[in-house]
Design a protein around this nucleic acid. Structure first.
Lengths: 238, 238
DNA sequence: CGTTCGCTTGAGGCAGCTCAAGTTGCGTGG
DNA sequence: CCACGCAACTTGAGCTGCCTCAAGCGAACG
């Protein structure tokens, strides 16, 4: 076991991420069962990998603190970012299919995750219908999220993609208790491009344009949303 | 219960789709348990919907015969095809998240599906670890499939998309016992375009080009792969 | 036999890519 | 503390692959 993995003294019941994490909506008895199982957390330094495509799958990870990106690397060398993950989000769900992770997960800042061994998820699902339902819903949600990503990639202009990205990030950060208007971009322009299916130049120009229109103000990685209504209008325009 | 839904006299154990269907790899005891549960199948006429976005979710469907497309419709009117489904494929997995289907499923020919009520899936998962594992793997596989779709939509040229599409279709049909080289396209060019993120014109021109290069021969909906190696070369070129 | 639907082909335009050059900020070592 | 190097970001100019718009064709079907 790596030095960075330690027995966890914390309980899900007290975790700040609980409402958005896997054990959400469980009763006290079920929470205790989860607690018996989720004994490990793991620290990941900024820039290092939590897992990598091809590695043997044995656990799901949920973000307890920090920020991650997951990505797919093709043989030709091009990269597709699959998503950004924060505070309660699950990673590694694509590993169940073949018992090997299909993607890479890289920390964009010093982070901490809870390790949930897959066999324990199966076990817990048999014991607790509420957990079972919740886990299946999370998988389904992941599928829905991908569907929306498909729509983004095939139908939206650069402006709509970037606007939608900012909007989504704002909403997710807000759900974690942060400001709806001040967004700290933890990823590079290249990351954004690889996620949105654009080049970094186009991302950059589009941000400049949004700033020029007074929709946002942008200073390096710090972004402030000045006109939320305009942002929504852009996202959902023909 | 609609007239088209009937008690099923068939058993999964004897079903031609079994090896690619949900009950794959189950032992006799487990198969019997599945049989107790999967009592319904449903016939769907060509062109009609199995379910529609927003409908209350209560069951997963697996294709027993025929061919389906699933799609997402945005408020602006544009359509994104999410996939094509045949022989043992599952549909409706995106409904678990919110208890409502998120997409539409339309039969491209007269088809028949097995109806698997969600509560029975949960029940069966608790009883049979093998079924539980298999169902989770199927969900995970769906996520992996979407990931690959993302890569397709953001990095590949029209030629690569169409070539990859043909290749994938060929493989899936082959897994169902059909010829690897003769592919019957059950969908329109528009469907292909909406799936691949291209216009029907571009799909058409690209097919013409592939035919001109001697990679395929094409006559309306019938496609014959003449040079499988060339197809693979196109799909996996920089 | 006409209408419709699916398909094909052509001409022109444009959004976003490529290539290139320059700027800014930050960490590192002298 | 400054000089340096590097990575991230920005901006410009030109190109191109796909889209849009338009027209025509064949097959299926009432």
């Amino acid at each position: 076991m790596p030095a960075s993995t330690v027995a966890s003294p914390y309980r899900c019941a007290n975790c700040h991420a609980r409402v958005v994490c896997l054990p959400a909506h469980l009763n006290e008895f079920e929470l205790e069962a989860v607690h018996q199982i989720v004994q490990l957390r793991k620290s990941i330094k900024k820039g290092s990998r939590l897992f990598r495509a091809g590695m043997k799958f044995h656990a799901i990870y949920t973000v307890r603190a920090g920020f991650f990106k997951t990505s797919l690397h093709s043989a030709q060398g091009d990269v597709q970012l699959l998503g950004f993950h924060m505070n309660g989000d699950s990673m590694g769900l694509d590993g169940m299919a073949t018992e090997r992770y299909q993607s890479d997960a890289i920390a964009l800042e010093d982070s901490e995750v809870c390790v949930i061994p897959f066999q324990d998820i199966e076990q817990l699902s048999r014991i607790s219908p509420a957990f079972q339902r919740h886990f299946l819903q999370r998988l389904s949600q992941e599928i829905v999220r991908e569907h929306q990503g498909s729509r983004m990639l095939s139908h939206m202009t650069a402006l709509q993609r970037v606007a939608g990205f900012i909007q989504g990030l704002s909403q997710r950060l807000h759900a974690c208790g942060f400001s709806r208007h001040d967004v700290l971009l933890r990823m590079t322009r290249i990351d954004m491009g690889q996620f949105l299916g654009l080049t970094q130049e186009t991302v950059c120009r589009t941000l400049t344009k949004l700033a020029g229109n007074g929709v946002v103000a942008i200073d390096r990685r710090h972004l402030r949303i000045l006109n939320m209504a305009a942002l929504e209008r852009i996202t959902s325009s023909s």
